[in-house]
Amino acid sequence: MKLGKDIQKILDKTYEPNTIIERVMGRYDLAFKTDEVGRPVLLFLGKADDKGRIQGERFARRLVTDAAGTITKDHWDNKGHV
């Protein structure tokens, strides 16, 4: 499974640092964790069960920054089914 353009738009934004944010996007439930800057770094994408846990796919973001803090590499890796 690949991330679509609409989901990627949500993940390109900056949010409150060190939090877990839950959203609904079309037919998918999203839950993502942000880093100390507020960038999403861990994503759960699928359908939430009655306890709120996402059943679907897990993605991890790979960010590489230079000494000035500029992002040089940025991509999402599919880590499999959860």
Score class of each variant (00 low, 15 high):
Met1Glu: 09
Lys2Glu: 13
Gly4Asp: 12
Lys5Ile: 05
Lys5Ala: 08
Asp6Trp: 01
Asp6Glu: 13
Gln8Ile: 15
Gln8Trp: 07
Gln8Thr: 14
Gln8Asp: 14
Lys9Phe: 03
Lys9Asn: 04
Lys9Asp: 11
Ile10Tyr: 00
Leu11His: 00
Leu11Arg: 01
Leu11Met: 00
Lys13Met: 13
Lys13Val: 11
Thr14Gln: 13
Thr14Phe: 06
Thr14Cys: 08
Tyr15Phe: 11
Tyr15Met: 03
Tyr15Val: 09
Glu16Val: 11
Glu16Pro: 11
Pro17Gly: 03
Thr19Ile: 09
Thr19Leu: 08
Ile20Ser: 13
Ile21Gly: 09
Ile21Phe: 03
Ile21Pro: 05
Ile21Gln: 04
Glu22Asp: 12
Glu22Met: 12
Glu22Cys: 10
Arg23Ile: 08
Arg23Pro: 00
Arg23Asp: 07
Val24Ala: 14
Met25Tyr: 04
Met25Val: 05
Gly26Gln: 05
Gly26Trp: 07
Arg27Glu: 09
Arg27His: 06
Asp29Leu: 01
Asp29Ser: 12
Asp29Trp: 04
Asp29Ala: 05
Asp29Arg: 02
Asp29Val: 03
Leu30Val: 02
Ala31Gln: 10
Ala31Phe: 00
Ala31Ile: 00
Ala31Gly: 00
Phe32Gly: 04
Phe32His: 06
Phe32Met: 07
Lys33Trp: 13
Asp35Gly: 06
Asp35Gln: 02
Glu36Asn: 13
Glu36Trp: 12
Glu36Ser: 15
Glu36Pro: 11
Val37Pro: 00
Gly38Ala: 10
Gly38Cys: 11
Gly38Ser: 11
Arg39Phe: 06
Arg39Val: 07
Pro40Glu: 01
Pro40Cys: 01
Pro40Ser: 00
Pro40Ala: 02
Pro40Leu: 02
Val41Met: 02
Val41Gly: 06
Leu42Gln: 12
Leu42Asp: 12
Leu43Pro: 12
Leu43Gln: 10
Leu43Asp: 13
Leu45Ala: 01
Leu45Glu: 01
Lys47Asp: 14
Lys47Arg: 12
Lys47Glu: 15
Ala48Glu: 03
Asp49Met: 02
Asp50Cys: 14
Asp50Lys: 07
Lys51Trp: 07
Lys51Ile: 04
Gly52His: 06
Arg53Ile: 13
Arg53Met: 10
Arg53Val: 12
Ile54Met: 02
Gln55Cys: 08
Gly56Trp: 09
Gly56Arg: 06
Gly56Ala: 14
Glu57Met: 15
Glu57Tyr: 09
Glu57Thr: 09
Arg58Ala: 15
Arg58Phe: 11
Ala60Arg: 14
Arg61Phe: 02
Arg61Gly: 05
Leu63Ile: 15
Leu63Asp: 01
Val64His: 07
Val64Met: 05
Val64Lys: 11
Thr65Phe: 08
Thr65Asn: 08
Asp66Asn: 11
Ala67Asn: 15
Ala68Tyr: 08
Ala68Thr: 13
Gly69Asn: 05
Gly69His: 02
Gly69Glu: 06
Gly69Lys: 03
Thr70Met: 07
Ile71Tyr: 04
Ile71Phe: 03
Ile71Cys: 10
Ile71Glu: 14
Thr72Ser: 08
Lys73Trp: 08
Lys73Asp: 14
Lys73Thr: 09
Asp74Asn: 09
Asp74Thr: 08
His75Val: 00
Trp76Tyr: 07
Trp76Phe: 10
Trp76Thr: 05
Asp77Trp: 07
Asp77Met: 04
Asp77Pro: 06
Asn78Thr: 09
Asn78Trp: 12
Asn78Ser: 15
Asn78Phe: 09
Lys79Leu: 15
Val82His: 04
Val82Thr: 08
